[in-house]
Design a protein around this nucleic acid. Structure first.
Lengths: 338, 338
DNA sequence: CTGAAAGCGCTTACAG
DNA sequence: CTGAAAGCGCTTACAG
């Protein structure tokens, strides 16, 4: 188990350890001949460089910290997989850090990761920026980070997001085209920027169609299934029942559907239901959900590329990126005949 | 950003760096007085030990490698969260490594993690052990690892699993009690140990009730929604249609339900559907699925504890652990009146 | 109970 | 194009 070191490779190849190091790091100014000698020695000894040694000597961790909040499981996982894939491609590892912004230790734990030299930069998922003292601190230190769909849009800080406003606008217009006049809305958590943008898109679509926005048909949700179920139940019991319910996310939309079936009614015949996100669940319920695709994979990949660019001191393509959403029409919505 | 080192703490406290190191590592034989002096200095300077330095000097990575395969997303995430939580509690980080056993580089990548000194041990999710040369290699090196539900049950290697056989037995008996005589089965991937155990439980329950096992009602699935949908469609079209379909997992069961609804029939009135795992999806479809709870969180936590015990040279509670499953009766199954 | 020395395995900065 | 020296910030092994 005593693994082979750069020293042994150097001895076998008959060069200095510095030369071996040059080859490991793809530095220029090495003759083909010595390069071959060293590579042969590496091959022969099965040498692999020690990461801890590398990190200590270079002062870099070659690691990205991904700070995620207890939001939707699928969102987190999709972000995670794509951040990892992209980071690995650029030679970076990913250190996951689950957290809870209501926790007093939140900022402290993150600063510890910095001081322990565990990470070179961060990617924050929403609602990351409500801990804004932390964000300001990192900014002042010039410690690199990229945020996903942050609440504030301070111009100097990079972020990546989706066209949430446009997505909700598209969906609402589509429902209006189907003849729905009373379209209820289940709004998402107030600490999420996306919840505000989506709601604004919904509201603007209503207004531009000349409809009134009725606060009675707007219900606060928390993005979980049960919350969509409860919202739907109370909307169903209204005297002037809505003919469509648009939810801030798919999970609540699935809950809303269950409530409709529970009361003996049918989706989409009696009530149309629409979600947002296009997570796998949206295809696994019956009828499959009409929704808006949130390009999580693209967002995560772009954010990672941007962080890597920052770490390398390169220029960003765009400081603030918006990735387009897309209307996905399935079977939970139908023409309104009421 | 030039962070404070152990040297500065030692100077401020008026002791040697070795003494500071002692306090950082909770070693005995330090007077209360010097302990206080050092802690005050740490506090005052805001000192946090550098992990790369610690790892290099100690030869330990304080990191657990979690090797996961592209199985069900929920399974992976549930395992991941619980491994991370438990590992962190014991002072370990987690390095995630997604992989594909069909990839030629699989074993090589994992051995690289070892040689790079990135991890002190591994946790493998199924179907990890089909790459058995790798497992044998690690075993010979005495590199610590714990497997989740491995295919082989070699007696010297630790693993943690669920009572899959018993769970499927319980579910099948329950369906028989409901009066179902023709119970179809959608089996899981052959490379998964759990798929075999669950199928065996189903078959034994049938046989012990004096029923014949009809190969026509057994369909090979791949654990994904679409596969359950397709299996269900072909079972529905049988002349002698089954009155119940038991699937190897919840995702396929959700697919099976969608197929029933698609053909204009009803669950559970026309056909009962049962799943396995008790993932969130099972409560988010309508009607909610009758299923068997697979205690993933407990399995992941126990596996992590065991790996930590191995790393510390401690005794394991049990070399092979079986965590009990539990029948969860919801609304996708009903009495058979056909 | 405390410390001086050596070393973990690399990279950085500087020579030549 | 190549190398000798110093150092990254800790821990280990050994003295006292």
């Amino acid at each position: 188990m005593a693994s082979v070191t750069i020293r042994e490779v150097a001895d076998l190849a008959g060069v200095s350890i510095k030369t071996v190091s040059r080859i490991l790091n793809d530095e220029p100014y090495v003759t083909e001949i010595t390069r071959k000698k060293v590579n042969d020695a590496i091959q022969q000894l099965g040498y692999v460089a020690s990461m801890p040694a590398r990190r200590l000597a270079s002062g870099q961790s070659y690691t990205i910290g991904l700070i995620f909040h207890n939001a939707s499981w699928h969102y987190i996982q999709d972000v995670q997989m794509n951040v990892m894939e992209t980071a690995n491609k650029y030679g970076y590892s990913v250190l996951l850090h689950p957290c809870d912004i209501t926790n007093q230790n939140h900022a402290h734990e993150i600063m510890n990761m910095v001081h322990q030299k565990q990470v070179d930069g961060f990617i924050f998922t929403p609602p990351s920026d409500n801990a804004s003292e932390l964000i300001q601190k990192l900014k002042v230190m010039q410690f690199p980070f990229v945020r996903l769909t942050p609440m504030d849009r301070e111009s100097q800080l990079p972020f990546v997001t989706a066209t949430d406003y446009q997505g909700a606008l598209d969906m609402t217009k589509y429902l209006i085209e189907l003849g729905h006049k009373r379209i209820a809305y289940v709004i998402g958590p107030q600490e999420q920027r996306a919840a505000h943008d989506r709601f604004a898109g919904y509201k603007d679509a209503l207004l531009s169609a000349g409809y009134l926005f009725d606060p009675e048909t707007m219900i606060q949700g928390d993005d979980h299934f049960e919350s969509g179920y409860a919202a739907s139940m109370s909307l169903i019991s209204l005297d002037d029942r809505p003919t469509a319910i648009f939810c801030n996310n798919d999970e609540m939309a699935a809950g809303a559907m269950s409530a409709v079936f529970e009361t003996g009614m049918n989706v989409p015949k009696d009530i149309s239901i629409a979600g947002f996100d296009n997570i796998p669940l949206s295809k696994q319920v019956w009828p499959p959900l009409t929704t808006v695709d949130q390009p999580i994979a693209k967002i995560a990949k772009k954010a990672t590329k941007h962080l890597v660019a920052l770490l390398r001191g390169e220029e960003l393509e765009c400081l603030h990126c918006e990735i387009p959403t897309r209307l996905v029409i399935r079977k939970s919505t139908a023409q309104n005949f009421h």
